[in-house]
């Protein structure tokens, strides 16, 4: 269990590190919130719901924002 928590935190750090924050900040509110949420959690399903997109569409956005999928 502890190992998974560590992995989760490492993954979050990587997403934070590589994200294109200029791109994210330039997005409309809803997408910005969804991208922030995704960076913090890695939860593609809920992030796509927050963004009002399909998972596939949100995944495209994630790529544009340079957020790695880990």
């Amino acid at each position: 269990m502890e190992e998974w928590i560590e992995r989760f935190e490492e993954a979050r750090e990587l997403r934070r590190k590589y994200a294109d924050w200029n791109f994210i900040k330039s997005q409309p509110v809803r997408l910005r919130i969804a991208l922030d949420y995704y960076i913090e959690t890695g939860d593609l399903y809920n992030a796509s719901r927050l963004a009002g997109m399909t998972m596939e569409e949100f995944n495209e956005l994630r790529i544009k924002a340079r957020i790695p999928s880990i």
Partner: peptide, 19 residues
Amino acid sequence: VFNEVRSETTLLWIAEGLE
């Protein structure tokens, strides 16, 4: 319900709740 919500305040609170 989720699909109807667009305001920043509401979305931020939901995002926090999900997290």
